[in-house]
Structures are given as C-alpha cells and as structure tokens.
Write a protein that binds this DNA or RNA. Structure first.
Lengths: 143, 143
DNA sequence: CAGTATCCTTAGGGATACTG
DNA sequence: CAGTATCCCTAAGGATACTG
C-alpha cells in the first residue's frame, strides 16, 4: 500500500521554530524584552545593574535584538553619552507570547515543586510588586 | 530621592523562561513534540527517517522529554523490539503554545521575505496537506 | 555612561561505527 | 528495530581589563 517516496531536502534555517529559538529564546533575551516593555525606555546600565549578565553578552544581545527588528537604539548627543532602548511594534507584539511562555513554565515548575525566582514573579504579576526589591542591583551568587 | 537598595542574589535555574528554553526550546524538541502529537504514537525510526537528526541526539532529546514529563516511552516485548512514544497530558497542554510560537515566527519570516519550509507549513496547516510529501524520508542537503 | 577587546568554558549538536 | 559509544565542532555565554 505504501508508495515509494522521493527523499526530500531540509534546511533548518527555513523553519519558524528554529527562527524563534535564534531570535527570541536565548538565555537573556526574554529578560531584556520584558524589562524594556515595563520601563518603556531602558538604558544599557539598567540591564547591567539589574541582571547578572556580562557587558559583552549584553551588548551582543542588544545588537541582535536591534538587527532582528525587536528594539530600537537611540543615541542622545550628550556627554557622557546616553543611549535609549525601546521596543518596536514587532517587539511589542511579542509580549503576549512571552507571557504564555512564562506562564506555562511557571505552572510546570510549580507542579514539580521547583523554586521560582521571586523577583521574576513580581515582574510578571504572579506576586505583589515591590519596586524597591525589583530595582535592587544584582549581586553575584557566592558559588 | 533614591534610597539605598540592598543587592539581591539571582539564580537563573529558578526562572521560568530559562526553564522553558531548557525543556522545550532546543533545536529539535518542537519537531518531536509536533510529530508525536500528529501521529498520536510515534516510533524511534519515524523521527530518524523524517528529520536530519543523528540517532545520538534523537535519543538524548527523547530521554530528556521523558524525564521532563512531556512524553512517555513504552517498550513492547517483541522481537525486534518496538518502542512507542506518546504525549503526556502535560505535553499535550503545550501544543497551543507551540502553535503561537510557530505562528509568530512564520509571520516574522514572511514579513522579512525569508523562505519558509513547505513541509513545516503543511504540518502546521499553513499550506494544504500532502501526506505523500510530509511522509517522505529525509535526504541530506548537499553542502 | 556605554560600551570594546581578549581569552576561556561549556552545552548542544553532528558523524560514524557498533550492538542486543 | 532501537538504540550506545566515541570523538569532534561550534555558538552562546562568562571573566576581566580597557576606552571615548
């Protein structure tokens, strides 16, 4: 009953899942997009202070998000220089999806009894917001 | 006006985004979950034939999905052995989210004029399904 | 303030051969 | 059929120092 099937080629760069993993689902990008969304406009140092991310990786990620059209980068001609990051319309349209991703992950972790970061819960509305805590700078976890 | 803020610690393993990236958003997992969903029950060889994935990586991914409670693995006592992979309730609950991810990626790629894999479009209902093509075995793309 | 520049580590994936 | 076992490669991220 089976017919002979011609083999087909496959190029993973043409797949939307792969596209999304590259453009959105890397370690820090959801944090960065979220933070810009909440603040409307963010600065380089706001990320550097609020997350345990190196300046190099932060810079790379912001450039990638800009290249992929999710954020804009505006340099203000001051001294010292000031740079503003904002979401594009495309970036904003991603927020409901990020919400669903966080929500599924949150419930999965709860179900498995895994500890969940309190600050992240506040940012996402799963816990009453305390801006003092949410704005606290990051401190390295002692290994 | 700013008060002094106590630094806070951060452990990324406690974050739901990071959890989702680890559990779901790696190269092949969305394909595997999708395929099992469509077929109800899948075999090891169905993946190995239909995707350009090595047996080692396929095995690792299936074990991980099982360990994370998204799929079940059932060994039938035959010779040669037959193994059946099915979605758990948790795995099934992920499908609407995967749909949204694919959809956002699909529209983003369209907007940017990027080519999109026809077979994937068929699997996801963005193009009329042709099962002959969808069941065709994978053939290496000549580099 | 907002980054570069170097150097290094690691997880995920790939190629190929072999087995109960 | 459904996998292991090896060995290898690369991209993402991290540590630290320096700069316009």
């Amino acid at each position: 009953m089976d017919e002979l099937l011609e083999p087909r080629e496959f190029d993973i760069t043409m797949d939307p899942y792969n596209h999304m993993i590259r453009v959105v689902f890397t370690r820090w990008k959801p944090f960065l997009l979220r933070a810009i969304y909440f603040d409307e406009v963010s600065s380089f140092s706001s990320f550097a202070n609020g997350l345990p991310i190196s300046q190099k990786v932060l810079s790379e990620n912001l450039r990638a998000l800009e290249a992929d059209g999710l954020i804009t980068r505006t340099v203000l001609p001051e001294t010292p220089p000031k740079v503003e990051y904002r979401l594009t319309e495309s970036g904003r349209s991603l927020m409901p999806l990020l919400d669903m991703v966080y929500d599924w992950g949150w419930h999965d972790m709860k179900r498995k009894g895994m500890p969940i970061d309190r600050l992240g819960e506040m940012w996402h509305g799963y816990r009453e917001r305390d801006w003092k805590q949410m704005r606290a700078p990051y401190k390295k976890k002692r290994s």
